[in-house]
Simulated scan of single mutants.
Amino acid sequence: MQEKARIQTMVGEDLLFLTDDQLRRGIEAMFFAYRAFTADPDMILGEMDYGRAHHRALHFINREPGLTVTALLAVLGVTKQSLNRVLRTLIEDGLVESRIGRRDRRERQLHLTQQGTALERRLSEAQRARMRAAYRKAGPQAVSGFRQVLEAMMDPETRAQYQAMKELPEDR
């Protein structure tokens, strides 16, 4: 029997029953939300002949200056060849610097230049504004629930990477 989401409370546990149609609507909401979330950065990136991979690289390098290429590979979950194309462009365009590691000279540590920091800020400003407005509209309980849903969707390795990123200082 198809019905709206029904919460059934049993002794000590809460069970949530969702129909296939409700799950499909949730999936569609994620698709449309992601499209809206990436629309502003996509316009800026398109003007520069960059793609979303460039934005993700800039974001995570900004989040953790000195991030190694190996660590960035792990965070992004892309191939070395794909990341090298993105980094080569960002370095050639003066947005990212690749420095030799202090402890291990074989490591390449990544840092944004002033120009890279300015572009990352420009790309992220609209996304922060969109998230801020949505969070305010939805309220604190919804924000907490949203994060819980996103974290529950992550596989254990991805969740561990995310948890490690949460431990970094917030403002850069």
Rank of each mutant, 00 (worst) to 15 (best):
P140F: 10
P156Q: 05
D155H: 07
D155G: 08
L110P: 00
A29L: 12
V11D: 11
E120Q: 03
L87G: 00
E13R: 14
I44W: 02
G94P: 03
Y162P: 07
E92W: 01
Q141N: 08
Q115F: 05
Y34E: 13
L95G: 00
A33Q: 10
A160H: 11
N84A: 15
S124T: 06
T89N: 04
E92F: 02
A160G: 13
G101C: 03
R147G: 11
A5V: 12
R132F: 10
M10D: 10
M153R: 14
D40Q: 13
E167D: 10
F17V: 10
G77S: 05
H55C: 07
A29C: 11
F60Y: 03
L150N: 10
A57T: 02
I91E: 00
R102H: 13
R102M: 12
Y50Q: 07
I100Q: 15
Y162V: 11
G46T: 06
K4L: 13
L67C: 03
T89H: 04
P140V: 08
E28Q: 08
T158I: 09
P169W: 05
F17K: 08
R121P: 08
E28D: 09
E47L: 06
E167Q: 14
T70A: 14
T9P: 01
E3M: 08
L87I: 00
Q8L: 15
I27E: 11
T79M: 06
L73M: 04
L168H: 01
F37D: 15
L16R: 03
R122W: 02
F146D: 10
T38A: 13
L168P: 01
I44C: 04
L168Q: 02
E97G: 03
R25A: 14
E64Y: 06
L119P: 03
L76Y: 04
K137G: 05
L18C: 07
E28H: 11
A74D: 14
L87Y: 00
Q22F: 11
P65Y: 04
G66S: 01
Q8K: 12
L76P: 04
Q115N: 07
A33I: 11
F146P: 06
D42C: 01
S82N: 13
D49T: 07
L119G: 03
Q109V: 02
R132M: 10
A118D: 02
R63S: 04
A118W: 00
L45T: 01
D49I: 04
L73H: 04
R99V: 04
R136W: 10
V149Q: 07
R88L: 08
T19R: 07
T38I: 09
